[in-house]
Nucleic acid binder design. Structure first.
Lengths: 303, 303
DNA sequence: CGACCCGTTGCAAAAAATGACACACCCATT
DNA sequence: AATGGGTGTGTCATTTTTTGCAACGGGTCG
């Protein structure tokens, strides 16, 4: 949308921290960029940047304006979605931030099913930890977030919430695979591999261990759940994951067992959006679908 | 704001129903206007108007876009207000739609008091009946509405609500002025003057009369509460008004008496805004002040 | 001090928007 | 059937706006 060009430039300047660099990014000269910014500031009635030796930085007024721009952009996208809807085109774009556990099975299935119905809808999937995901929503960088055990929950509007019991993941021949359910002490007494503490699963493990005056000390710490899942096949070790990220590979190599709820309470997997925002049509419908799928597969009550 | 010029033009076309007329209104030629509209439609990806012989009319896409424009405009005004706030200027504009009863005493006092603190804030006061007031909010024509007995209440967010008992207004020498409280039948059996049925007071009177199998039939019907208040001094007749619009003139000429609550239940005077909208700073603060004043003067609980 | 990067400004060239006019169309009078 | 007034929309010269280039002044760092 051409009429927002000035805003795009302002955002670029804010991001680059320098007019000349931003000018290069946007493929115009620094003088043209500078004049546009100055002219807008004059019209707007207030400067948007602090001019420092060495560059510029947004001032509070600039922050507010940029926020307005993002909100406008998001609303415009919603309108365009609605218009596409009534011309029957059904195009659109869905962007979401999610935890890693959703990547192997759940999201691919959901997205594929949705795209089978609406082939012209495109997707952007960003993997984020729990804190980042909420940041994404706040800045309108993502329409939806699907995260395990989010932290802040301000400006975060819950669409669907399902419980997820932490499971231990191990090779099928691991001794603990004999038991139908593991106790926390089983896990702590055997070598384990886990993600860093900014992830929800680890957070629950740490918390539970502290409660039992024990300490959770993984031999290997990795951000990648895929790495964890594969590593337990190479060394007698247990990893951790939530059910939505687990499925039997079919070759009998992997086993996973729930950890007793009295040791580690079930965590929450939450689908949410920015509070008070009205989503583009495509995102809203996708959210409905995902919410229904979550409820059907993992909902607290059996239907 | 220059970047919204195209939207302004589109709105003008929608209002005028014709490109040529809109062009004249906006002081440009029809060809220039037409090209801007067409270019925007192309960029937007959809036509905004139905082209009819004899003019144009907004299509659904156009309606949606115009709504986006108004929302954007309102959000921008809010941002400018906040910016003015942090530069300490404290400027702004408050627009409100209200019932007539607020005009003689309540609003002038409130506005004057607010302006004493913030002289650079300007006001727009639009007198509207209950249906129109909500329409004003929906179209962003007013920030606030202060109406007696609003009707629809969809997209209407209540900020403060206070009860108002219908009062009879009459000359001090009217026989009924002897009684401390009037019954509905007293009113129906004496000549009366009242506003048309789209006003809240009349609505309550009609409703109460029907419930008692009587009919409310005013000798004079007038939209102007001021007219009603003055007329009862010239002929032995009773008028109706709510307390917030009544104050003893001091010369002992006028009397007002409540009508028994068992005959006519108290109606609601409601201060509200458009649902989900974040108001400009000045409007939000004024709303707070008005809400507090309403509660203090007419709140259900005595403090 | 000189090299470098910063935002900003004057001026001419390029690009975009505009106004005036013409055209095709529809509809109600004539 | 012709006509006149209304509509939206193209064309093209003209005006306005925006841009790129080069230069300037000021700050930091080696």
């Amino acid at each position: 949308m051409k009429h927002l060009q000035t805003f795009r430039l302002i955002e670029a300047v804010a991001r680059a921290g320098s007019m000349r660099r931003a000018a290069e990014d946007m493929n115009i000269t620094a003088s043209a960029l500078n004049r546009r910014v100055r002219r807008f500031e004059e019209e707007f009635g207030s400067e948007l940047f602090e001019r420092l030796p060495g560059g510029v930085r947004l001032n509070p007024a600039g922050e507010l304006l940029l926020h307005h721009y993002r909100a406008t952009l998001s609303d415009l996208a919603r309108v365009q979605g609605q218009v596409a809807d009534l011309t029957g085109e059904r195009r659109g774009h869905v962007s979401l931030a999610c935890s890693q556990a959703l990547l192997p099975y759940f999201l691919p299935e959901q997205i594929a099913a949705y795209r089978a119905e609406h082939p012209r809808v495109t997707f952007g999937v960003n993997v984020r930890d729990r804190a980042e995901a909420e940041q994404e929503l706040a800045s309108y960088a993502s329409d939806l977030a699907l995260v395990f055990e989010p932290i802040y929950l301000v400006d975060f509007e819950v669409i669907q919430i399902v419980p997820q019991t932490v499971h231990a993941v191990m090779a099928a021949n691991h001794p603990l695979a004999q038991k139908p359910e593991l106790r926390l002490r089983d896990c702590l007494n055997t070598p384990h591999i886990a993600p860093p503490s900014r992830y929800g699963v680890r957070h629950l493990l740490d918390f539970a261990a502290r409660k039992g005056s024990r300490q959770f000390s993984p031999v290997i710490e990795s951000e990648s759940f895929e790495m964890i899942r594969h590593y337990v096949l190479h060394e007698q070790m247990i990893g951790f994951q939530i059910p939505i990220g687990l499925r039997d590979p079919g070759d009998g190599s992997l086993a996973f067992r729930p950890i007793a709820a009295r040791d580690i309470p079930a965590g929450n997997l939450i689908l949410g959006q920015r509070r008070g925002r009205s989503l583009p049509v495509a995102s809203a419908r996708f959210a409905l679908r995902v919410a229904a799928a979550l409820k059907a597969q993992y909902g607290p009550e059996i239907v």
